[in-house]
């Protein structure tokens, strides 16, 4: 297991290195002169050249990459081009904290519910309940986030007044935080629920056909015990993998939901950076998102290995 973990950590480091190269290469390809972008259209050539030297833009590209990478790893994430050269790191970390809170709450909502629905659908394969669950989850995933988000706001914020219409992570108490985040987390859950339900259902249906389930049944175990003690553990590998992928999306991809609820997360920060061609900020946000994405996948793989001795012991 240690060997497996070590191997996966090395692979993760390599993944991050490769993405960092990709990100850097892509930002190099973006059109426009950075110096002119910062100083404005009317800037004098000497000022532009000075800034370029100052930013290292005249250095060879590999050297620029190296300087950026070593800086990033040592905690110097640079300053934002625009908006008064604010340091990037505190800004990104604050937004990351907000995104993590929202992501965890969304997973808390949708993972147990989806696994339950998926398992129930599998046990009632081709029956009414299975069809109803399929229909419900597909109907929900078919709706765009801004529709479900706005609908939730209309009902629960504007109508019933249970939750605020816009969410803020800047609250002193946990109760208030939950109240703030419930609606955006629910909206994100609606997107994920169908994937997780369908994968769980497929996994359980596959496992139920295996001979060991017959063995468990013929031991005299109840249907529930067969499912909980024998089937789920073997059926959940694909579910766990898709949850990890969803986690990456929850951290960096919630642009629409964050906009609907005016929530200051990483997704909105990234779109802002792209709109303003703020390259250092863009690079930092993408690296952070990729890191969590890779880490979630690593944890998922370790979990799958833990559940499946054949992966773990080979």
């Amino acid at each position: 297991m240690t060997r497996y973990l070590a191997r996966r950590l090395v692979l993760m480091a390599l993944t991050l290195l490769l993405t960092s190269i990709l990100i850097f290469a892509l930002t190099q390809l973006l059109p426009g002169d950075v110096a002119r972008l910062i100083l404005g259209r009317e800037a004098r050539p000497e000022a532009l050249e000075n800034l370029r030297i100052q930013l290292g833009l005249n250095d060879p590209v590999p050297m620029q990459y190296w300087n950026w990478l070593t800086g990033f790893v040592s905690g110097d994430w640079g300053t934002s081009f625009i908006g008064g050269s604010a340091p990037i790191r505190p800004l990104v970390l604050e937004r990351l904290g907000n995104s993590l809170k929202l992501a965890l709450l969304a997973l808390t909502f949708c993972v147990p519910l989806s696994i339950l629905l998926g398992a129930v659908a599998a046990l009632r394969e081709q029956k009414f309940v299975d069809g109803a669950i399929s229909l419900f989850t597909l109907a929900v995933v078919g709706l765009p986030e801004f529709v479900t988000g706005l609908a939730l706001i209309n009902i629960f914020a504007l109508g019933l007044g249970w939750f605020p219409a816009s969410a803020s992570a800047d609250t002193p108490t946990l109760g208030e935080l939950l109240r703030q985040l419930t609606l955006p987390a629910l909206t994100a859950s609606f997107v994920l629920i169908a994937y997780i339900v369908r994968l769980t259902r497929a996994g359980v249906v596959d496992e139920l056909k295996k001979p060991y389930v017959r063995t468990a049944t013929l031991k005299g175990l109840s249907r529930r015990a067969v499912l909980v003690r024998h089937v789920l553990r073997n059926a959940l590998a694909p579910t766990i993998t898709v949850i990890a992928i969803s986690f990456g999306w929850l951290i960096g991809g919630l642009v629409v939901i964050e906009n609907v609820f005016s929530y200051p997360g990483l997704g909105r920060l990234m779109t802002a950076a792209v709109e303003r061609k703020d390259i250092p900020l863009m690079q930092a946000v993408v690296m952070v998102v990729i890191f969590f994405y890779a880490a979630a996948n690593l944890i998922a793989d370790l979990l799958v290995a833990f559940l499946n001795p054949r992966v773990r012991l080979e």
């Binding site: 295996k210 001979p211 060991y212 017959r214 063995t215 468990a216 013929l218 024998h230 553990r233 073997n234 559940l307 499946n308 001795p309 054949r310």
Partner: peptide
């Protein structure tokens, strides 16, 4: 009690 044909597949792998 049943003793099945394919013992490996009939035992819970995990």
């Amino acid at each position: 009690a049943l003793v099945p044909q394919d013992a490996l597949a009939s035992l819970n792998p995990s």
